Amino acid sequence: MLCRTCGDTLSPVAPECPRCDGPQDRRAVLPGLPTYRVRGIGLAASIAVGATAGVFLLTALLPLLGWALAERAAAERRFEPLLGQVLAELVGSLLFVLAYVTAAVLVIIWSWRARKNTDAFPGALPTLGAGWAIAGWLVPFANFVVPARVVAGIARDSLPRRRAPALVAVWWAAWLLFSFGERIVAQVEQRRSAGLAEDPVTSADFQAYADHYRDILAVRLAPAVAGLVAAVAFAVLVRRISVAQQDRIGRGTPAWPVIPGMTLPPGAAGHPLPVVTPSPQVTAPHTPVSPPVPPVAGGTIGA
């Protein structure tokens, strides 16, 4: 016999599942509550998050190009080579914004669906409503804590072990380092670039550009690494949660058509099979019918 919650093998003598601590008679999914597919949207969200981290890493390495172009500009005593770095930074910024917005939308959709699914899981104890899966990312200051609490609750109510995995803490810590680090890097770059000559002429002017790109490279790499860690941790979390939810929903969904009003058999939603007692056939009483009387001549008017 398998547990309807986590799918593990149950002991015939134990009242609860040794893996998820759920009672043996607990349903997999509550009937009448909507559930949503999360594997596809979870995969799309993971790819978008990974693409965002990858684009940011590429932009973090762009100072290498700027360093080389600054050396070339110093050798040729021309400012034009440095325009290539400006164009590369612009393209990188546009790609990052596009990937970031796409990832944000997909992550919010997945979080909302996964959170709504836990409403249909018996034994789940959510601490935040499904609306916080959306608002938690958008409300200022709340977005420092709420998304992590939402995902931790989803993981706790979806995975076999009744606790949030440590991977949630790794993901959120890396995400905060990435978010704050990105802003700090932007401020540092703006402050340092203010001292560069707008129209470099001397060797010292070009050397200042080369030194600027060399120093910025080390500053940019720190949030880039944090972003990669956050992306990998989030992808693993999404996969584990999505697989667990889809498997549980599958165990609670009957493999036959369900007609409204019918009683579901065991395994579908924990309902017993209806006991149908055939009613005895009732034979209608035989009503004798008199034989027809043959017509007699003169029995009718005008005969």
Rank of each mutant, 00 (worst) to 15 (best):
P31G: 04
A169G: 11
Q207N: 12
A222L: 14
G32A: 06
P15E: 14
A174C: 04
I249M: 15
P63V: 03
Y100C: 10
Y213H: 14
G40C: 01
V146H: 10
L264Y: 06
V86R: 14
I109M: 04
P223N: 03
G181L: 03
H271E: 07
H271F: 06
V139E: 03
D199E: 13
R183K: 15
R162C: 01
T9F: 13
L10N: 05
L61D: 03
P126H: 03
V276C: 04
S193P: 03
L176F: 07
Q190C: 08
F178G: 02
I301M: 12
A235P: 08
C6V: 04
A155H: 06
E16K: 14
G40V: 01
R162M: 01
V86Q: 13
D211G: 11
A73I: 04
T59D: 08
V238S: 04
L217S: 13
P285M: 05
G299M: 08
A68S: 15
R77I: 11
V49K: 03
G195A: 15
V86F: 10
W67H: 09
Q281S: 11
V139F: 01
A45H: 12
R214H: 11
L43V: 11
A164L: 07
R248L: 09
A130F: 13
G136P: 03
E198H: 12
S179C: 12
R240L: 14
L176K: 06
G299D: 11
V225D: 08
G136N: 00
S11K: 04
L94G: 03
L57C: 07
A244Y: 07
V168P: 04
K116A: 09
H271A: 10
A135D: 05
V243L: 05
L94M: 09
A233V: 01
T287R: 09
V101E: 11
R183Q: 15
F121K: 10
P126R: 00
V150W: 00
G299F: 09
A230M: 05
T202H: 13
G42K: 08
A231K: 00
V276M: 06
G267K: 12
L43I: 08
P122T: 05
Q246T: 15
Q190P: 09
D157M: 13
T283I: 14
V236W: 06
H286T: 09
G54N: 04
G299P: 07
V275E: 01
A303H: 12
G50C: 01
E71V: 15
F180V: 12
R149L: 11
E71M: 13
A233G: 00
D119C: 11
V201K: 15
S242W: 02
G136L: 09
V170S: 07
A74D: 13
P274N: 00
R214I: 07
L62H: 05
Q207T: 15
P126C: 06
